[in-house]
Design a protein around this nucleic acid. Structure first.
Lengths: 232, 232, 232, 232
DNA sequence: CATGAATGAGGATTCATTCAT
DNA sequence: TATGAATGAATCCTCATTCAT
C-alpha cells in the first residue's frame, strides 16, 4: 500500500521474523504456532496478520533472510572476481554448495516444511552478472531474462534431485559446466572454470556447542577417544 | 502378552504399517493424521489404537521395518565375509553409509520427526559378531554386552554429529578405525580394514520417477540437456 | 434362559463382579472401563457382554452384593429379635443408618454414578416380616404387597432427601415411627420402638489404613497431637 | 500476566463459570463435557481454552466461587466477633461445618471429582486473624506463615478423615481445641471457646424444590404423611 | 495499526459395544 | 460360551485465522 514504510512497521516485522527464526532454531522438533511467535515478539496475536497473510509466509520470509545472509557472506569474495564468466561460475558453485552444506539453511527449511526450497542468487544480481558477461563479449545470450530464469530453474531442479538422492553431488559440476556452455563459453573454458575451487568463505554461523566449535577450527575430525568421553 | 499372534492381527498391523509408510513417501510434505492412516488401511480410526499406543509409535515401527530391509539387503554380502574383524568393519561401514546415503531412510525419518534416529545393526547380531571375533582370537574384549552398547552409542553419536554438520563424513573412517582398535586390533590392521571398500550392495529401492531410474543404472549423472527437458 | 446355571458361569460372573468392585475401591477417582474390568478378571472383552447388557449393569450388581453383605452382617441380630414389630423397626433403622454411614456403600455408589441408590431390605424378606406381624396380630394391613412397596418408596425418598441436605438425619426417627403407625401400631408403641437403640452390629469392612483401624477400635477420636504427626 | 483484565473478558469467564456450575447442579449424575459448557455459555468450544487450561480447571474455579460465597455469608457474623481468639475459633468451626453440611459444596465437589477438597478460609485472612491475636497478646506464635499453613493442613486432614468415615464429626471439636492450644491458649480457655456454639448463619442457597423450602423455614422435618403425597 | 477475544475445524485418543470365529 | 478384533461416536485440546474495538 504505502511506498513509505515507517521505521516502526519495519521494527515490528523484524521482531516477528526474529521470533520465528529463534523459535525454530531453539526447538526445531515441535510445531510452532502463530501465538507463540507473537508472544515471543511481545505482540498481540492479531498483529501477525498485519504483516503476513498466512502462517507459512513468515517462514518463507525468514528463509529469504538466511538467503540474504549468504549473499552478504559471499559479497567480498564475489567483488574480487573480475572475470564475468568466473564470477558466474563461482556464484553458481557457492549457492549449490550452500544448498547442500549450509546447516542452518537445511535445519530451518526442513523444520518448517520448506525442504524443497533452494537458496539462490538474487534474480536482479544474477541478471546483472549475465548482462555484464554479455557486454564483455564473454557470453552469447538472446534473451537475458529468460536465460536467467532458465538457470534458476535448472539449479533448483538439480538441488532437488540431489536432495532426493536421485543423483550425486558431482552433478553440481556437470550442472555448472552445462550452464556455462549454455551461455556460450567453449567447452574447455567451461570445464576449467567449473573446476576452479571456490575460495574459502567465512559463513556467519549461529552458535554451536563448544566442543564442535573448537574442532571446526582445526581438523574437522575429532578423535574417537574424545567422542567416547562425550558419551557419558 | 500373547505368544500367539493370529494371522489376522498380523495382517491388520501390516496394513497399518504399509499405509503409514506409503502416505509418508507419497506426500512427505504434509502432516499425516491417524485418521488418514486408518482410512488408507481401510480400517476404523479406533482400530489403530489396538496396535499402537500413540501416533508416533507407528513411525518408529516403520523405521524398524526399513532397518530390517537394510539388514536383508546386506545379508548376502555379510555372509561372504569370513574374517570376523573384516565382517565387523564392513558392517559398521554399511550402516554408517546407510545413515548418510539411504534416501528412503532419510526422507522417512525426517518427515516423521525422527531425524535423530540412526539405522543400526541388530543388537543380537552385533553381539554375535563380536563374540565370534573374540573366540577366533581377533578381538580382546572384557565385557561383550557393554562393548556392544558402547559401539552402538558411538555410532549413533557420530551419525548425529555428521547430520548436524559438526563434522564431515570422513569421520566415519576415523570412527570405524577407532572401534576396531578398541576391540583390540593393531593400529595398522584397523587402518587396513577400515580402508577396504564396501562391496556394492543392491538396495531394495522403492520406485522412483522413471527418468532417474534409468540414470541410476548407468552413469548417475544426467546431462543438463535432459534436465532441461524435464523443466516443463 | 437356563434355569440351571453352571458353576463355571457363576465363577466367571463372580470374577467380573470382583474385578469391578476392586477397581472401584482401588482407584475411585478414575473412570473404569469395561476393558479394564475384563483384563483384571483375566477374561476377554467380549465375555463381559455375555453376563451384563451394559457397562452400568455390573455396578448395580456390585451394589446388590454390598447390600447382601449388609443383610448378612445384620442376620444374627435380626434373628434374635422375636417381636415382629420390633424386628421391622430395627430393620428399618439398620438400613437407614447403613445408607448414611456405610462408607463402602457411599464410596462405591458415588463413584459409579449411583449416588441415588439406597440400600434396602430384600423385598421378599420385608414382605415376610410384615406378614408375620399381621399374623401375630401386631399389624393391620390390607394389601401386603402394596404396603411393602410403599415402605420401600418412603425409605428411598427419605434417604434421598437426607443426602441432598433437604432434611436432617433426625428425619429417620420420624420416618420409622410413621411407618410403624401406618402398619397399625399405636402412637406410643411406635415411638417406643423407634427410640430403641440399634444393637451394635459388626460390619464386614474392607481394609482401612492401619492408623485409623486402631482408632476405630477404641475411642473413634484420635488426638490432634497424633494427627499432627501424620501431617508430614 | 496482565494487570488489566477487560470487562468483556471477565464477563466471558463468568459465563463459563456459571454454565459449568449450573450444569453440574442440574444434572449432577452425568459427565459434563467442555462442549456442553461452552454451548450453555453461548460460546465456541475453543473459547473455553482461552480461559482455562484444562477441563478440570474450571471446576476448581467454581469451587473457589462457592468458597467465596461461604466467606461472604459468614462475613457479618465474623465482623461482630471482637475477641481474636473467639474469632479464630468460630471461623474454624464455620468452615469445618461447611465441609460437612454445605450441600452445594458436597454435591458439587463430589460430582466433579474434587471430593477431597475442603472449603477453607482465605489464607490471607487467616494469617491476619492470627496476627491480630498475637498482637493482642492472646496467641503466642513463632512463625505466622508456618502456623497458618499448619492449621490449614490439619483442617484439611481432619475433613478428609471424617469424609472417609475414619473418625466421627466430634473430631471437629477436638481439632479446634487443639489448634487453639497450639496457638498458646490455656486448655480451659480453648475448651470454652470451642464449646461456644456457632451463631446461626444464613446461607445463600441455590433454589430447592418448593416443598422442602417451606419445611426448611419451620421444623426441618416433614411429616411422613406429606412425604407419601410426594411419592406419586 | 495494534489488540486480543472469539471462532470452529481438525486431530489425538478413549471406550462402550458388536460380531465373526 | 469365550474370544478379541473392529468399530466409530464422543471427548479433550490446539491453533490458524477473523474481526470488532
Amino acid at each position: 500500500m504505502e511506498v513509505v514504510t515507517s521505521d516502526k512497521r519495519l521494527a515490528t516485522k523484524r521482531a516477528l521474523l526474529d521470533a520465528a527464526r529463534d523459535l525454530v532454531f531453539e526447538r526445531g522438533h515441535d510445531r510452532i504456532s502463530v501465538q507463540e511467535i507473537t508472544k515471543r515478539a511481545q505482540l498481540a496475536t492479531g498483529t501477525y496478520y498485519n504483516y503476513f497473510e498466512s502462517k507459512q509466509e513468515i517462514f518463507v520470509a525468514v528463509a529469504e533472510d538466511l538467503e540474504r545472509q549468504m549473499a552478504k557472506d559471499f559479497e567480498a569474495t564475489r567483488a574480487n572476481i573480475k572475470d564475468p564468466a568466473m564470477r558466474v561460475a563461482m556464484t553458481l558453485k557457492y549457492y549449490f554448495h550452500q544448498a547442500i552444506d549450509n546447516q542452518d539453511w537445511k535445519d530451518f527449511t526442513r523444520c518448517v516444511g520448506l525442504s524443497d526450497l533452494s537458496p539462490r542468487q538474487d534474480a536482479e544480481e544474477s541478471l546483472n552478472d549475465i548482462e555484464i558477461g554479455v557486454k564483455a563479449g564473454r557470453f552469447r545470450v538472446d534473451d537475458l531474462h529468460f536465460t536467467q530464469t532458465l538457470i534458476d530453474g535448472m539449479a533448483s531442479h538439480v538441488n532437488d534431485a540431489i536432495r532426493k538422492g536421485y543423483i550425486g553431488r558431482n552433478a553440481i559440476e556437470y550442472a555448472i559446466r552445462s550452464i556455462l556452455q549454455m551461455l556460450g563459453l567453449p567447452e574447455l573454458v567451461s570445464k576449467a572454470l567449473t573446476q576452479t575451487p571456490l575460495p574459502p568463505i567465512a559463513a556467519t554461523k549461529r552458535p554451536r556447542p563448544e566442543y564442535y566449535e573448537k574442532r571446526a577450527e582445526g581438523s574437522n575430525i575429532a578423535s574417537i577417544t574424545e567422542y567416547q568421553q562425550t558419551l557419558a
